[in-house]
Computed example of a mutant assay.
Amino acid sequence: MHPVLPFTIAALLFGIGVYGVIVRRNAVLLLMAVELLLNAVNLVFVTADATIRSLVPHSGQSFTLFIIVLAAAEIGVGLALILQLYRLRRSVDVEELPLTEDAQEVAR
């Protein structure tokens, strides 16, 4: 397989992920967009590892495995935070979150 196809798919996945991070207000959809970004990077690493033989064999696959482990931990922590946010605020809308103490004082 020519490496242009996986690189193109990775670019599309990354673009969709960036669009999701910029546009979405729902925290769960934001996490899904971040996962798309990570999967695009994984695809680039594996494709580059298969096409370009570097000094360290299978280094792209090792990085990909590390990213998959980090993504699983990120989803676990992220979903726990979103669940707690929903319990406290009854909403998972990111724009409703006060980011600083000043924002809380203005809301009162």
Rank of each mutant, 00 (worst) to 15 (best):
S62T: 14
L38E: 11
F45V: 02
A48R: 04
V69F: 15
A80Y: 12
E96H: 07
R87W: 11
G60W: 03
L88F: 12
A80F: 13
V92K: 11
L81H: 09
L36Y: 08
H58P: 02
P98V: 05
E95G: 09
L83R: 15
A50V: 01
R53D: 04
V56M: 02
D49T: 00
P57S: 00
G78M: 09
L88I: 10
L37M: 13
R53E: 05
L43G: 03
F66S: 05
E96C: 06
E74H: 13
A73K: 06
M32I: 12
I68V: 15
R89Q: 08
A50N: 08
Q104L: 15
V94T: 12
Q61D: 03
L81C: 12
P57A: 00
V94L: 15
Y86D: 12
I68M: 14
E35I: 08
I52W: 06
Q104Y: 11
L83I: 12
E95M: 10
L38T: 15
I67N: 11
V94D: 09
L83H: 14
V92L: 11
R53W: 01
S62K: 09
V56K: 04
D102W: 13
I52S: 04
L88A: 14
S91I: 03
G76E: 06
I75D: 09
L88Y: 12
R53T: 04
D49P: 02
G78H: 06
N42S: 14
V92E: 14
I52M: 08
R90P: 00
L37N: 12
L79Q: 11
R89A: 13
G78D: 09
Y86A: 10
Q61R: 04
A71Q: 15
L37R: 07
R53F: 01
R53V: 01
V77C: 09
E101C: 01
L43C: 00
Q104G: 00
I67G: 01
Q84T: 14
T47E: 05
L70S: 12
A73V: 14
E101Q: 13
D93N: 13
L85Q: 15
L38M: 14
L36V: 02
T51P: 04
H58F: 00
S54N: 01
L88Q: 14
M32P: 00
